[in-house]
Amino acid sequence: MIPAPFAYLRPDSLGAAVAALAADEDAKALAGGQSLVPLLRFRLAAPTTVVDLSGVDGLRGVADDGDALRIGALTTHHEVVRDPLVAEHCALLAMAARTVADPAVRHRGTLGGSLAHADPAADLPAAVLALGAEMEVEGPDGARTVPASAFFADYLTTALEPGEVLAAVRVPKLTGWGFHYEKFSRTAQAWAVVGVAAAVRREDGAVAEARVGLASMAPVPVRAGEAERACGGAAGAEDLRAAGALAREAGSPPSDLNGGADYRRHLAGVLAGRALARAAGMEAVQA
């Protein structure tokens, strides 16, 4: 299918991109196009102007920024998977990115595009939520920072206002933490029926702190707060599986062709326990 016609702009600065988006209320930003091009083709989106961000300098790559990593919005999934700083300080992001789609989609799709698109079944939103990341947003009224916990507003909707561009994601360094991303999907390259992003900090052999982000359990990614709190002091996989089981109470899961709400609750409980135990190094990861 062929998209409806649109004007195409490829500005070379962030200021020009913001101005172009602000000048047309039906304009859309284009990053990797792995969500937008399919929507254009189905004519589910018909923007009058498409503003390609690929010409803007400084939106791509991972930089060490003291107690956090600053990851440019146009950094691709493929680059996130291989980045040595990500591997050292927030490997959860790479674990989630590795499960996105297939190699060809990961070569084009970007971290910023995935977060701005805000599909409830997407993998990276759940990971940045668990990591406590912050979004650096640039707009007509200047720059602002939005925590991940306030960024995802509703189904396919974020806190981005018209004309605003997601410029970078600041991910706090959780050096020394253990991570695991557990995704359940029906076929290769499919979206998550439920996804669980787990981060665990251990002290003296027991769990001191844990974070759990869930994909596909609500219109937005959610934290499993009860499960997180129940992890404190856990000394083995059994404890973590019991704590993880509380994730079934989180969110307000949808019922769709991939599974009913009850099934998703069941999956969330089982997968959260497994993800926590693996993140803590208390259960072997099977290939």
Binding site: Y8, L30, D52, S54, H78, P103, V105, H107, R108
Partner: peptide, 25 residues
Amino acid sequence: TSNCGACTVLMDGASVKSCTVLAVQ
């Protein structure tokens, strides 16, 4: 629909689904 990969080509050496890339990109 971006799913089958029949249209895969290499763009600057990396595989892409050419039905999911605009020519201008």
